[in-house]
Nucleic acid binder design. Structure first.
Lengths: 67, 67
DNA sequence: CTATGTTGTCAAACATGCTTTACAGTAAAG
DNA sequence: CTTTACTGTAAAGCATGTTTGACAACATAG
């Protein structure tokens, strides 16, 4: 899963820790998602989209690879 | 997480098993999501949205409860 | 130089998502 | 009544998501 979370977060002037606190997870979780070590849960994806006032699809894009 | 998957699935004339096969999971997984026993992964949510040609938010809505 | 803030990473533990196998209940078709 | 299709559920096990605590590297401010 690709994502442009770093771009959006930096555009909003937030550190990983600040964004983490805003959406109720730890700094490590935001870091892992930004570095694409794993995908967020659907619930966390919704919280991130809500925080940036956009659609989930505006932050996360499934890989080209269609299983 | 609320969802209108049963509505959409039935509107498309699909059984749980058929939808499951279409998005690459088991019948039990679709059943569990429809019955709200757990939320789908973000990846599965994307596949369901793609299958119904809509946004994730058109199928799944986070609970009113804002943690 | 020291302190502070930010990011990257790791291991252990725990929570959630998904599969497999299996069984039960209902409804419709023969 | 028997068969078939569909749905609901359960337990075990594996895979993934998240937390906690910790440590390292870097940049910048004092």
């Amino acid at each position: 899963m690709e994502n442009n979370l770093p771009r959006r977060r930096e555009a909003a002037g937030l550190s990983q820790g600040e964004l983490a606190e805003a959406v109720g997870v730890t700094r490590q979780t935001i870091n892992a998602i930004e570095r694409e070590r794993y995908d967020p849960s659907l619930e966390l994806a919704f919280k991130l989209a809500a925080h940036f006032e956009c659609h989930i699809e505006d932050i996360f894009q499934p890989e080209e690879n269609n299983d």
